[in-house]
Nucleic acid binder design. Sequence first.
DNA 1: GTCAACAATTTTGTCGACAATAATGCGGTT
DNA 2: AACCGCATTATTGTCGACAAAATTGTTGAC
Lengths: 232, 232
Amino acid sequence: MSSRPAIAKRTPASSGARRRSGAIDLPKVLRERIARHEYPPGAKLLENDLASEFGVSRARVREAFGALENRGLIRRIPNRGAEVARFDLPQMFEIYEVREMLEGLCARRAVQNTRPEAWRDLVALFGKPMEQHVKNGEFEDYIAKLEILRRRTMEAANNRVLADMLDSINDKTGEIMRRIIILPGRAAEGLKQHRAVLAAMRKGDAALAEKLKRGNIRSSREFLERYQGFIL
Amino acid sequence: MSSRPAIAKRTPASSGARRRSGAIDLPKVLRERIARHEYPPGAKLLENDLASEFGVSRARVREAFGALENRGLIRRIPNRGAEVARFDLPQMFEIYEVREMLEGLCARRAVQNTRPEAWRDLVALFGKPMEQHVKNGEFEDYIAKLEILRRRTMEAANNRVLADMLDSINDKTGEIMRRIIILPGRAAEGLKQHRAVLAAMRKGDAALAEKLKRGNIRSSREFLERYQGFIL
DNA sequence: GTCAACAATTTTGTCGACAATAATGCGGTT
DNA sequence: AACCGCATTATTGTCGACAAAATTGTTGAC
């Protein structure tokens, strides 16, 4: 077998994510691995190795690479293979710039499309207990609930194009977000901001929700800026 | 040969767009054909026909389909083939919603990154002569110059992620835009708006440029709404 | 010892063939 | 004549093999 660049091996078809019968959803699995930096930025992805690992032909790996490339998750140089895209700080700021606009739009539309009562359970999700969790550094639960909030908001916004773009951004910033959350004070501040956004949603104030959501993203960006040396 | 659904045949490798030597850039060609409704929405795309038309193997057509699919330009149902995506009015509005935000951001950043003098030639492009062209219904020139403005703005904004998203949107709205422009009064009003945006750019007023650009997109959307019966 | 040219290996690019699935046409029955 | 079931055809899904390109390793001259 050829050399694999410091990447742990897996059982064939480890994760679920199957399409019909026995066929795994390669793009999804690869996306996950890239998102959690199991394939770190810059890692070379060899078609042969992936093919034999998943027990599929190179053609399918290649097809998956195509999807990943379009999403900007890998970089492909002709005749020289594919490697996980690496985003430097300026690029991250570019992404956050777009993200601020889109998340704001998403929040606004979500409010406009939904009755205020629909957000009750989410307000509860980020209630008092969460404060303790955040203070104690138990972030997994927090992150999981943020994801629920994200999905619910996108669902309510009911805009497929927007959702696709936000998903694409999420793929690119997944690991970075985890690193930002553990920054000193970030989780607590973030929690406050999410509560404020949810409060605006419950009041049915779309414009305010948008403004607060944008502030939330900008704040996250500022943490990234301030602590850049510890993240990248 | 199998049946081809009301789609004109072409000489092999008609358009330029070659990659290295003799290899054509399939995704690009197909994107263009879809954008100009040479393949109308709903048209079935057969791998075999495309392959033989371009003189390549089905594998490459298939790869191109993959790219088109996650750009949202075609719809693929397993074992049932690919067809050009069709966007109904609500979806178009969704796209315009996102577009308004992104074009606004693009204009603002373009201004912030560039010296005001840099827009002089573009102001000239949309000067007096254009007024006559628009009044006489000579739109091709107008559209060409709009594209120049678009590219220059995106270039100045200097945000790759944003540019990709705007390109993606442009692919989806290409033909619709052409139909909106010929609507009564639209071109003249659009010209006025573009001039206003450019004036803001020349003043270096980023916030104003953003606001005006958003207004421009919203106005375009309103024409689509008003004349929907004549467009879709 | 260093470097360049050449050879061997690895890796990607392309293709045609075969298998699986869905669409179509046909014949028989009611 | 309309409808159901079966055979045929058309189309997509998957694969392995071969070709082209780049990388790596080796040898020899200076």
